[in-house]
Computed example of a mutant assay.
Amino acid sequence: MTENKKFTTVSFFNSRLTSVISIALVLFLLGLILLMGLMGDTLSRFVKENITFSVVLKDDMSEGEVKRMQKKLEAEPFIKSIEYISKEQASKELEEELGERPETFLGFNPLQASLEVKLHSEYANPDSLQLIEKQFKKYTNVSELLYRKDMMEVVNDNLKRIGIILLSLAAVLMIISFVLISNTIRLLIYSKRFLIHTMKLVGATHGFIRKPFMIYNMVSGIYASILAMLLLMGALYYLQSELAGFIDLINTDALLMVFAAVLVLGILLSVVATFFAVNKYLRMGVDKLYYI
């Protein structure tokens, strides 16, 4: 008798553990997609605001004129930041890349001073850049503007495409989540199908029969949600260790929203799946219980 009780307890624990882990993995993937979707705007802004273009200055421009020009440009609404790169600094940067200063083999420094400009994200698109380019060319001391127009277009197109892909993935994963969680819960309730039938025979109402199953799987959904949140935090910690500054892209409010969504979905999907799974056996005749 004791051995049977122990076996039943172990079996109960194993089935619950399997259920919780299965649901948690599905919720983890769903939470990851939701987090990436909410991070999309921040990531888009980060990428766009780190695309720079160079305003090449004429050699006869004095340092005072550069400072006045830089101060005037910093007041423009489309400018996020401006960094002045002198001829000497440009030469040092080239030396770091090539291992030799250009003066060594040319006898003079052919590089020109420049302003490295970063734009606010809403202006970092080809249409806005055309207008900004015209505005820069009004300055007589500007020699030319250097930027990769094709790269700017590619970045904007890819960011839009990523947004659509993430939205589609979230929708597909939501459907898959419900199916997987539903199948996991059905397997658990399958072993209780004769108990459900017995309760029907003694006059128990459908609501009374459903209640313990609903509570059991709701608690499992909460456990699974907590496990999924821990997995998400672990994934974020790993990404931060591999990609410095990654954590700066994550909005705390967005992270809390994802955790809340994972918890709600864990409970909601478990309860809904339990409702339909129990109803299946409530409607089933005793003769069919032996053949499923």
Rank of each mutant, 00 (worst) to 15 (best):
Y147M: 13
G64Q: 13
N109Q: 02
F136V: 08
E65I: 11
I185F: 07
K87M: 12
D127H: 14
L145P: 00
G207P: 01
L269E: 12
R68N: 09
S44W: 09
I165V: 10
V262G: 10
Y84D: 12
V202P: 08
L188T: 07
S182Q: 01
V264F: 01
A260P: 02
E95T: 03
S143H: 09
L169N: 08
Y223H: 10
N156W: 08
A113K: 08
G107P: 00
H120V: 10
G221N: 10
E49C: 15
A273V: 15
T8V: 01
E122W: 13
L106V: 08
K138R: 13
G266W: 02
L249S: 01
E95L: 01
E116D: 14
F213A: 07
V47Y: 11
S225H: 00
G207L: 04
K134T: 13
L243R: 04
K137T: 15
M233F: 05
I165R: 03
G234I: 01
Y281N: 06
L17Q: 01
D253A: 09
L249C: 07
D127S: 14
I222M: 05
N251M: 11
M61S: 12
F136W: 05
M284Q: 05
Y123W: 14
A204Q: 11
V142L: 03
T18S: 06
Y84K: 05
T140K: 14
K137R: 15
L243I: 13
A277V: 06
S91Y: 09
L265D: 06
V154C: 05
N217Y: 06
Y290V: 00
K71G: 10
K280E: 04
K160E: 10
E100L: 01
I162G: 08
G64C: 14
L146D: 09
E63S: 06
N14E: 06
L159H: 13
M61R: 12
M214N: 04
E122Q: 15
S191C: 05
S182M: 02
L243W: 06
L269W: 11
T52K: 08
E63Y: 14
G203Y: 10
S220N: 11
V55A: 15
G234N: 01
S241K: 00
S128H: 14
I165M: 04
N183M: 04
V264T: 01
I181D: 05
I292E: 02
G245K: 02
L94Q: 08
L111M: 02
P77R: 06
Y147C: 09
D287A: 06
T42Q: 05
L263Q: 11
A170H: 04
Y216G: 12
T198W: 00
V179I: 04
G31E: 15
S220T: 01
E242T: 06
K118N: 13
N251I: 00
A24H: 10
P77L: 00
A224R: 14
I215N: 06
A124K: 11
E103L: 04
L35D: 12
V179A: 03
I23P: 02
G40K: 00
V264W: 03
Y238A: 12
L94V: 03
M233W: 05
G203H: 05
G64K: 14
N251P: 07
